[in-house]
């Protein structure tokens, strides 16, 4: 019926789907017939076809200058190993923002919890922990255990977000490093990221911001307690590694906020 009554207005209403080829067969055929008998509509279709064809083969515009020197200058900014964070970031890239932030909030808590828990179990079995180290681990477990985890399955998020193979250069050097070196190395990047991260927090809803801030507080507490423990046990490689990991988590979280 449609073909016998199709007007230009009807044709134009169907035009988008007609060009996409998503109309049912009968309507598509009706549109074809209308186009064949209507010069104005045929011209319209021809014009749109010309636009589509041209758009797919546009020449590349030229940049006003070579941007590489500016890019390279930014690459020269000291940045720590990003492979693990980047891998995790890529896995999150296809996730819807709300889901990503739920996982982000969970990750900050979960990483502290699992890292401390695993280390606690391993070290306890090996009898390696000094009293100061034991206090730090116990504190981390206690703190994170009492913290909000945004109501999700932490275990699955942990498995996905934690990369056991990721070892930073700083962590490798933990036995010889000192807290002051870690403060310097991480402090520089944290300072750079903090401003942007704080700005981006404004893009999130208040409840998410609250969760993120609580988890930053947890990480800060882990850093503080590790440093305090190192003051009484300065040769503990374990404590240095704990401090390094806490810093790494903080940088990772800030980096994700900064690149939101």
């Amino acid at each position: 019926m449609r073909e016998s009554t199709m007007t230009c207005a009807t044709f134009e209403a169907e035009l988008g789907d007609f060009l996409e080829g998503t109309l049912d067969d009968a309507t598509q055929a009706a549109c074809e017939r209308h186009r064949a008998g209507c010069a104005a509509c045929a011209a319209l279709v021809a014009d749109l076809d010309a636009i589509v064809t041209s758009a797919s083969s546009l020449p590349l515009p030229a940049m006003s200058r070579d941007l590489w020197p500016d890019i390279e200058a930014r690459l020269a900014t000291p940045v720590l190993d990003l492979s693990s964070a980047a891998a995790r970031g890529a896995s999150l890239a296809s996730v819807r923002p709300a889901f990503m932030w739920r996982r982000l909030a969970v990750a900050a808590v979960a990483l502290v919890t699992v890292s401390a828990g695993v280390t606690w179990n391993i070290a306890r079995q090996a009898g390696e922990l000094s009293p100061a180290a034991s206090a730090v681990v116990a504190s981390a477990l206690e703190t994170t255990g009492a913290t909000e985890t945004a109501g999700t399955s932490a275990a699955s998020d942990i498995a996905e977000l934690r990369d056991p193979a990721a070892v930073t250069p700083v962590a490798v050097a933990a036995n010889t490093a000192r807290p002051i070196a870690l403060d310097t190395i991480y402090g520089r990047e944290i300072a750079m990221l903090r401003t942007v991260a704080e700005e981006n927090l404004g893009l999130l809803d208040s409840s998410t911001v609250a969760v993120v801030r609580r988890n930053l507080d947890i990480i800060d507490r882990a850093i503080r307690e590790s440093r305090e423990a190192l003051a009484t046990d300065p040769n503990s490689g374990f404590l240095l590694e704990q401090l390094d990991r806490a810093y790494e988590r903080k940088v990772d979280l800030l980096r994700r906020l900064a690149t939101l």
Binding site: I71, L75, L82, S83, S84, A86, G89, A90
Partner: peptide, 12 residues
């Protein structure tokens, strides 16, 4: 884009 790509190359 290229700074981000540099940072994320490990994920490629």
């Amino acid at each position: 884009v290229f700074v981000r790509a540099w940072q994320k190359l490990g994920s490629f």
